[in-house]
Design a binder for these strands. Structure first.
Lengths: 209, 209
DNA sequence: CTCATTTTTGAGAAATCCCTCATTTATGGG
DNA sequence: CCCATAAATGAGGGATTTCTCAAAAATGAG
């Protein structure tokens, strides 16, 4: 049986923790199917094969649950990104690898994508968490003299927007690595690199062959 | 009395047309105040000073109405853009002026912004309509040899994403012309222009002094 | 002005969903 | 295994919203 992310975290825990995890997994799944706004409490409990009232033993309302689910997913993604980024020093390469990995992870766990994207609008802390990675890599690049930009919140938002579109497009049309590459090139262009240089960095960063 | 956009279109029309327009104006206003998801039929009819049941004489459901409202707004914006763009031949300048004008229009009619942005996700045709302008200007630029890009749907989506973020940011934090300028520069960078050239074009295009 | 037709009205039926709580069931330490 | 405690259950009350429809009002062509 394929356990969801939260239930995997909860093996060995007490009953309380395990049903809580089941609810969170169910929430993620339901959001992926129906979106955040259309989500009903009963959808979640049904998907988790639990009774309706059980929900209220664990969460006070829908938003609390969604926030926790989104934060849990964001944390898991952060962990994976951390692992993949150790030892990379060149800022443009970091940006490209982090972007591509992030998109890869989210598209591999398709259920995660929905809650990350839907959550992005509502759960502001989420957006900030993921953006923190980006910010530090951008700062690195500015300090290295490789990015010709003013580093501010607006810049982050613009880049995040490019990433989000890349994910939603591939959610709709199916995965396509070329779009991810194109998005990375575009981000580097936006950061002030020439088209030629952007292409070169993306190619070497994403084709270690 | 300040008539809304749809009622203005409907002066001189029959009663049916006029109450329909009143409902659409009310819908736009309510979406601006409460968002698309939280919108109730009764909100719309109340705002339009009509009875609840009247709604069903004109629309079968909420989405049909929202789609029509969004399309009407998109058409109005297209008209205004058409008027402002006549005679501009240089592709980069066209892109910059159209982008800046679009953002200006939407932020000036704040009620429009909400339905355009909320609609963008749900009403796909909308996205395409507005994007058609962009597409033709991009084609022009590619033909003129000024843009170093492959013109496809993904490119359009990336650029639209940058514009959308610029609008939402200014809706949240208040209008700031500098952000619009920055967004235009970023779009030109994305299209393959150097940072210096991008800045120069934006400056001359948006400061006719 | 007249009146057949169109349009609006608003009360209430139907549907949906949230949330409570008395009861049943499961848990796990001793 | 026992049993005090923790957790799950799900029927039902309540709140909200959608949608219907018979009756009332408005319209505008002749």
């Amino acid at each position: 049986m394929q356990l969801g992310h939260f239930r995997e975290q909860a093996v060995g825990g007490g009953k309380r923790e395990r049903t809580r995890a089941a609810l969170l997994d169910a929430a993620v799944k339901v959001v992926a199917e129906k979106g955040m706004e259309a989500l009903k409490i009963s959808d979640v409990t049904t998907a988790a094969e639990l009774a309706n009232g059980t929900f209220y033993n664990h969460f006070t309302d829908k938003n609390e649950m969604l926030r926790e689910a989104a934060n849990g997913i964001a944390l898991a993604i952060s962990r994976q990104l951390d692992a993949e980024m150790v030892g990379i020093k060149d800022a443009p390469t970091r940006v490209v690898k982090a972007t591509a990995s992030f998109i890869d992870i989210v598209l591999r766990e398709l259920d995660w994508a929905a809650i990350m994207l839907a959550g992005a609008a509502h759960v502001h802390q989420l957006n900030d968490d993921v953006a923190a990675y980006l910010r530090s890599d951008l700062k690195l690049g500015v300090d290295q003299g490789k990015f010709d930009v003013k580093l501010d919140r607006f810049l982050i938002q613009q880049i995040v927007a490019l990433i989000v579109v890349t994910i939603t497009t591939q959610m709709a049309d199916g995965p396509d690595r070329r779009l991810t590459h194109q998005a990375c090139e575009n981000i580097l262009r936006l950061l002030g690199l020439s088209p030629a240089k952007a292409r070169k960095i993306v190619t070497t960063a994403l084709h270690p062959s």
